[in-house]
């Protein structure tokens, strides 16, 4: 028993485990960062999973056809933004229910990704190269973790810092939060509520597309249908977990990244727990965390946007 615990402890603090946690967390952080902006503007886009999986298919297609990871990433971003544009036209332009449209986007995206990706199943690409700085990357212990990641990891960190600066330290960010908290007042003050929300939705789609593209470009160097396996939904839960605050989002993304690979990492220890049960961990953890967070709401300083998910039709 004690020996097993020591083994688990060693494993969790090993360099290789932490490196895998970073790779598992990055798509979650990218997707949930985008959704955080969308929800802060008052829109609930449940289509993250659909945008991610299409981003994965287009990202792989772009990289495979061009031989460039950058082109792949851009393809994923454009695909995600295009899908979110459809969502925006329906929910903002035609005032359709956001929950139903988000579900439609996911159903559509899962089908579309299968269609796009069918030609590429079984193909392989060279995954994104990791950073290598002479001296720094070779530092013992922290070198590879801090200075030897793939470029997406640094992008994801820069993105969430940028979002924090935008939301809390800039005037447009203040307007975006105002639109999310009370669209009627923002409209009365003369802010173009629907246009601001559309931009936020497109940004969220681009982030989800990039998060999806990360999977075949850096996580595994190939495309499998359904490879996002619920990460888009976990990203949505993360925004709730973070109480709509960027700082907590980073903590949440890394916690969930760790939980999601724990099952795989513990496999060699032969704990006698069925693999399927270990694979349930990230989903069960999401349910438990949602329950705990929702229960603590109010005391935990939640920044839930007051107009979240509500339809807004400007009167003239």
């Amino acid at each position: 028993m004690l020996e097993t615990l020591i083994n688990i402890f060693h494993l969790i603090f090993s360099e290789s485990f932490i490196l895998t946690v970073v790779t598992a967390s990055t798509p979650l952080l990218l997707a949930s960062s985008g959704e955080l902006m969308v929800e802060r503007s008052g829109v609930l886009n449940l289509g993250v999973e659909g945008m991610m999986i299409v981003g994965a298919a287009c990202g792989f297609a772009g990289a495979w056809l061009s031989g460039s990871i950058l082109v792949g990433a851009l393809s994923g971003i454009i695909a995600g933004a295009a899908l979110s544009g459809m969502f925006g036209i329906l929910t903002l332009g035609l005032a359709v229910n956001q929950v139903a449209t988000g579900l439609a986007l996911t159903i559509f995206g899962v089908g579309l990704s299968g269609l796009i990706g069918a030609k590429f199943v079984g193909e392989k690409i060279a995954p994104a190269a990791h950073l290598h700085l002479p001296m720094l990357t070779d530092l013992p212990g922290v070198g590879r973790i801090l200075f030897g990641e793939d470029p997406f990891v640094y992008v994801s960190v820069a993105l969430i810092i940028g979002i924090w600066l935008f939301l809390y330290r800039s005037r447009p960010g203040l307007v975006l939060r105002a639109v999310g908290d009370n669209h009627a007042s923002a409209h009365a003050l003369g802010y173009p509520v629907l246009r601001i929300r559309m931009l936020a939705v497109l940004f969220g789609g681009a982030c989800a597309g990039l998060a999806g593209a990360y999977l075949p470009l850096a996580y595994t160097p190939f495309f499998i249908p359904g490879m996002t396996s619920g990460r888009g939904w976990i990203a949505l839960a993360l925004v709730v977990f973070a109480s709509w605050r960027p700082g907590r989002l980073v903590i949440g993304a890394y916690l969930f990244g760790a939980v999601s690979i724990l099952g795989l990492a513990l496999q060699p220890l032969q704990l006698g727990i069925p693999q399927q049960v270990m694979n349930m961990l990230p989903y069960l953890a999401t349910v438990v965390v949602l329950v705990l967070i929702s229960r603590a709401r109010g005391t935990a300083g939640s920044a839930a946007p007051a107009s979240l998910g509500l339809v807004f039709v400007p009167d003239r």
């Binding site: 359709v96 439609a104 559509f108 899962v110 089908g111 579309l112 299968g114």
Partner: peptide, 28 residues
Amino acid sequence: VPLDLTKVFQGILLFYVLACDSLIAYRV
């Protein structure tokens, strides 16, 4: 044609259904 095409059609159908439903309460 791939079987996934059916899922794409079903997704498109849901989009159109939701968009048309909006016309019940609103006029463009």
